[in-house]
């Protein structure tokens, strides 16, 4: 069984209004010194077969096609 993690984040130039809202809420809870928060998505994908180049390429294709919208987001993937 191959297990991959794909993390999707908004591109840095895209306003992350949800991350900003979290950043504004933290000081109200007493967490001082927070200089920034960005919010993203994490996908855990399990595949039949070994972790090899073909499997990595399939997950990359999934990320490009569906998990991330390349217009506004970037992704990173790794095997676990």
């Amino acid at each position: 069984m191959a297990r991959f993690v794909v993390e999707v984040m908004l591109k840095p130039e895209i306003l992350d209004s949800q991350g900003q809202a979290v950043a504004r809420a933290l000081p109200r809870l007493g967490f001082d010194g927070v200089t920034g928060v960005r919010q993203g998505k994490r996908f855990e994908i399990e595949l039949e077969g070994p972790v090899d180049e073909a499997a990595t390429e399939r997950v990359r294709k999934m990320a490009e096609t569906l998990l991330a919208n390349p217009v506004i987001e970037t992704f990173e993937l790794r095997a676990e």
């Binding site: 908004l10 895209i14 306003l15 209004s17 949800q18 809202a21 919208n69 217009v71 506004i72």
Partner: peptide, 17 residues
């Protein structure tokens, strides 16, 4: 339509949330 790439760009969360 944007997700389908029939139109350019994307629609994201309202700035006000």
């Amino acid at each position: 339509l944007c997700e389908s790439h029939l139109l350019p760009g994307a629609l994201t969360r309202n700035a006000s949330l």
